[in-house]
Design a protein around this nucleic acid. Structure first.
Length: 294
DNA sequence: TAAACGTGGCC
DNA sequence: TGGCCAAGTTT
């Protein structure tokens, strides 16, 4: 028998209160700006790699206005090797928009958050909930997986579904604002440390007694096959990364010859560099290329 | 809608 | 060791 929605919340919140990891963004008094920065950094990136960059970032730019006052190049440099450097550009753009449109205050309204560059359905609600304590469903890869298993009895969540995922999480949310916030964080935490994609630790799971997947005998996933990641070695992505690392390493512009020496396949190099320029991660300056200055 | 987008951790 | 996965968003 699948769990009633009301069954989950007390198990999740009770477990979270004693098992939550001690993470920077959970410290008392952590600023909304810090939450926003952390959520940008956490997109597709592991917690352990984010923490050191986050601390540096907030030490250097304690408010959105501080970041907005710098050229985008500095944001991209400070991003370092976190990956997906367009996120650094987006975060800089969002900081500028917050400074200009919101008096430098990170908004709590989901629609205003969604209007900021680089903020989508997940990040907007994560900020509203974790920074401001508002009541919204927060849906990420962790909560989708925990719901698929514990509620629907399926091993994997299947592809994201904008129409279904938010209502599915909303149906589980406690009425109380503060309980809802803890529930959001708790369900994510269960997915991150217990109900993991591979080798879930079901014996330690607070939902084990109500889990529909467990009750059904852990049936194998039989839904749509997910598109698999392409090989990174030799990809355009790798070339882009190599070029960006070189651009980050210096404050002067680099000549076409200097950059071209980084990769043997000239045609692929051209494609990668053109892509970076199109994405505004690199700009043409006095006969060479550099990170973007406003 | 699906593909593109970095880098590293983990088994 | 190679493939899957990671607090997603954009086009």
């Amino acid at each position: 028998m699948p769990p009633e929605p009301s069954d989950l919340a007390p198990l999740v919140t009770g477990w979270f209160r004693t098992n939550a990891r001690d993470l920077p963004w959970r410290r008392p008094g952590f600023p909304a700006w810090g939450t926003l920065v952390s959520e940008f950094m956490l997109q597709q990136t592991q917690v352990s790699r984010v923490i050191p960059r986050l601390e540096e970032w907030l030490g250097r730019w304690p408010t959105p206005a501080d970041l907005a006052a710098e050229p985008p190049a500095e944001a991209v440099r400070a991003w370092g090797r976190l990956g997906y450097p367009r996120r650094a550009l987006w975060l800089h753009a969002a900081a500028t928009q917050i400074a200009e449109r919101h008096d430098g205050i990170v908004p709590s309204d989901v629609d205003q958050l969604l209007a900021l560059t680089g903020i989508g359905a997940y990040t907007a609600r994560a900020v509203a909930v974790f920074a401001y304590g508002d009541r919204h469903p927060v849906v990420d890869t962790n909560t989708r997986r925990v719901i698929a298993r514990s509620v629907r009895g399926q091993g994997e969540p299947g592809p994201p579904n904008a129409k279904a995922d938010l209502p599915a999480m909303a149906a589980l949310l406690p009425e109380s604002r503060s309980e809802a916030a803890v529930f959001n964080a708790g369900l994510m935490e269960i997915g991150a440390v217990v109900c993991t994609a591979r080798a879930p630790r079901c014996e330690e799971c607070p939902l084990r007694e109500v889990c529909a997947w467990r009750a059904a005998g852990y049936p194998a996933y039989d839904g749509p096959v997910k598109t698999k990641q392409k090989q990174f070695a030799g990809s355009d992505r790798q070339v882009r990364g190599i070029i960006m690392a070189e651009l980050r390493s210096t404050h002067r512009s680099l000549t076409d010859e200097e950059l071209r020496a980084l990769w043997p396949d000239g045609e692929q190099f051209d494609r990668a560099l053109a892509g970076l320029v199109a994405d505004r991660l690199a700009v043409r300056v006095d006969g060479g290329y550099a990170l973007p200055h406003d």
